[in-house]
Simulated assay, not measured.
Amino acid sequence: RDVRCAALADMVTGLQTAAPWDGPTGITPPQDKGAARWEGSPEENVQMLRAALHLAGASQVGAMELNDHMLQIFDKGAVVFEDIEKGTQDEKKVYHIPQKAKYIITYTIQQNYMQSVYQLREDEAYPGKLAMPMPLGRPAIHRAYGDGRYTEWQAMRFVKNLGYHAYKAGVTTNVALGIFSGLGEQGRATYMMSPRYGLMNRITNYIITDLPLAPTAPIDFGGTKFCETCMRCAEKCPSDALGQQKEPTWDIGPGNRSGYRGWRVDWLKCIEIGAPSRCGVCHTLCPFNHPSEGIIHPVVRAVSATTPVFDSFFASMDRVFAYAEPKSHEDLEAWWTRDLNNWKPDNTHGAGTFKW
């Protein structure tokens, strides 16, 4: 094990502590300073958040209204919405949130795909599969979580400085948040996949607020349909935890929640080998991860959305062109001496189109 890689992964772990559940403290809303709080239409507010949160590091932003159906996303007994002015938490750790805070802002944090592929390796212990990851690729995951905390602080501060409440409490099904607010679809690996970033959406985070928001509708870009025939993640999973069924299912399977038709993972198998927290195989292999500046990749995305008969062919070509293959020893060593003036995978928050 290369101590440099272990040190690199630890370097970007815990970049920012999580924001308090009711947002960063020390903020005086404009109405308490003799000014009017921001007043915009629900549609204007969503566009405003997209612009602001992009600068803060969010790759996508959506919105939901908390009707009776959407309230089912919350963990049972974790949150109570009441006619109160300000949110509180009681001695039983139950969150009490004002009824007027009936909107949810959703946003995703993108993971660096090019760095992620440095996780992949082969091992005789997993014939025909990929093994548990190389440490050189782990910073991509840790950095994304650190970025997520940093973005969370900024997003909640922004909302509170507009003169509105910002809460984060009671939801652990972050994939459902992204799907219901139109940021992507569920993929075979159970994570949310988007047409632009594939499975490189490391986190779908959220803020509960009373800032009026126009809900963003769920989308169908052909991603879930693509997963029916692709099988890239399932065939290389070291624990054989990913199902190879033809279509999404109502069957729960080990360690899954009930109540929805979707892809399922055998989480007990996954956990047996120390995953998912230590495994980056399935999300790194998704063909929708590939950079858009390759001329064929936007074409594949567009065709998959309208003509799924080609999905199996596209997945086969992904194998032929050897995307997301394990790096050689020489490639791993070369990372440490790479030409940074021409290194494409780096990105800057809010800088515009992401060029790999």
Rank of each mutant, 00 (worst) to 15 (best):
V80I: 10
P218D: 02
C230S: 06
A78V: 13
K93D: 13
A6G: 15
A101G: 04
N342I: 07
F226D: 00
T173Y: 10
Y145K: 07
Y126A: 08
Y197W: 05
P195L: 05
G274N: 09
K33T: 08
Q244D: 11
K236V: 10
Y191N: 15
G87N: 15
G182W: 01
K92P: 09
R4S: 09
V46F: 03
D318L: 10
A241I: 12
M192N: 02
A241D: 05
A78H: 05
L332Y: 08
L136C: 04
S116A: 15
G253R: 10
P24I: 14
V309R: 03
Q99G: 09
Y323T: 09
D220W: 02
T204A: 06
V281K: 01
A63M: 04
R264Q: 06
S312L: 12
E333C: 11
M231H: 11
I109L: 01
L332M: 08
K160D: 04
G274Q: 12
A322G: 02
G148K: 02
H142D: 12
D311A: 06
V80N: 12
P308Y: 03
P218K: 02
R121A: 11
Q245W: 14
P30G: 08
H54P: 00
A101Y: 01
G34I: 03
G222K: 00
L285S: 02
N347V: 12
S258A: 08
S277D: 09
M11W: 10
P218I: 13
G352P: 00
R138G: 03
S59Q: 07
A18P: 00
A189R: 02
T337W: 08
P24W: 03
D90T: 10
N161K: 09
P215E: 08
R50N: 01
L177S: 01
R37W: 07
Y103T: 01
R157G: 08
R261G: 07
P215Y: 08
D251C: 15
Q244A: 15
D32L: 09
S328Q: 07
A58Q: 00
V94R: 05
G187Q: 08
I252R: 14
L242N: 06
P287W: 12
